[in-house]
């Protein structure tokens, strides 16, 4: 298990370094220097000189790359071009909002998705199964930001049940909870579809396995077979997909947060892109990549705990 963990984490670190290098190289590949890129047509020579000095762009390339890596490893992701605030501070300020949104969205999707998947297994081959199948695919197909706009229109504007904007008042749990409902609904719905399909497929596969027949042959109850013998195997692909799901949820969060003007990583990065505030964009991207790699690696380690066969693949 330890060897597996070390190898898996090492792979994540290598990938993170490659990504950092690629991000940095991208800035140098485009024509024009980053300072005028960020300042745009409003650039005055004085402003530009100041920015170049502040960002260390006057130094040789190898020094710049070195500084970039050294700073990033110490948690310094650079400074906002305009407000001059550290990028990391801005990220950490809004990150909890996005995290809460993602967890709530995945949470309700997990509950409903697993339930629908199990329903489809129980009624496999019937009309219910077919209907659930079509419903799942439709849920996967509908863009989350359209769901966001429609739910905003219906529940916030017409019915006025839930807030249309923001993440709630800090410290007021009730208002924060009310603010997360619609965005989490919009993001989660795709995942209800994915998870229902996934759980159905992996449950069907596991329930047909020989060892389930053995458990039945020893007279174990169907409930015990499902909970102890089948679910533990069927849940493995679900954990794997949830980790990937976190990355995908970030994508939908970018759009859905904007629709609800909810402070978060998505609104932070989109406003920075619009202003071409590239230290913020690069810093946020790097931060989220690291976070995503962390989640995926953690999921792989959890899978290895759940499935003893996986750990032995890396042991040899």
């Amino acid at each position: 298990m330890l060897t597996y963990a070390v190898k898996r984490i090492g792979l994540a670190v290598v990938i993170l370094f490659t990504v950092m290098l690629a991000m940095y190289a991208m800035v140098f590949l485009v024509p024009g220097d980053p300072a005028s890129l960020a300042l745009g047509p409003r650039a005055t020579p004085a402003l530009k000189a100041e920015l170049i000095a502040r960002m260390g762009l006057d130094q040789p390339v190898q020094v710049q790359v070195w500084n970039f890596f050294a700073n990033a490893l110490q948690g310094n992701l650079g400074y906002d071009v305009w407000s001059k605030k550290p990028v990391l501070d801005q990220i950490l300020e809004v990150f909890p909002n996005t995290l809460i949104l993602g967890v709530v969205a995945l949470g309700w999707a997990l509950v409903l998705g697993v339930a629908l998947g199990c329903l489809a297994v129980v009624w496999r081959g019937t009309l219910v199964d077919t209907a659930l199948g079509i419903l799942s695919v439709s849920m996967i197909a509908v863009p989350s930001f359209v769901i966001a706009l429609y739910s905003l229109l219906v529940f916030a504007v017409w019915l006025n049940w839930l807030p249309a904007v923001g993440a709630g008042t800090p410290g007021d749990w009730g208002s924060q909870a009310r603010a997360v409902i619609l965005p989490a609904f919009a993001i989660g719905i795709t995942w209800v579809g994915y998870l229902a399909r996934l759980v159905r497929a992996s449950m069907l596969e596991v329930m047909g396995a020989n060892h389930i027949r053995t458990a039945r042959a020893f007279g174990l109850s169907e409930a015990r077979i499902v909970t102890r013998y089948a679910l533990r195997l069927a849940i493995i692909p679900t954990v794997a997909i949830l980790a990937v799901g976190f990355g995908a949820i970030l994508s939908s969060a970018v759009f859905v947060e904007t629709v609800f003007s909810r402070p978060g990583i998505g609104t932070l990065i989109t406003s920075a892109v619009a202003k071409r505030n590239y230290p913020v964009v690069m810093g946020t991207t790097l931060f989220m990549t690291a976070f995503y790699l962390f989640v995926v690696t953690a999921a792989d380690l959890i899978i290895a705990r759940l499935d003893p066969r996986v750990r032995d693949v890396f042991r040899g």
Binding site: I15, T18, V19, V273
Partner: peptide, 20 residues
């Protein structure tokens, strides 16, 4: 592997920042 480790939208936004 590195490219697919980037959340797709983040990568897209980074490119848009650079290219407009």
């Amino acid at each position: 592997d590195s490219l697919s480790s980037l959340p797709m939208i983040m990568f897209a936004l980074a490119v848009i920042t650079v290219l407009g």
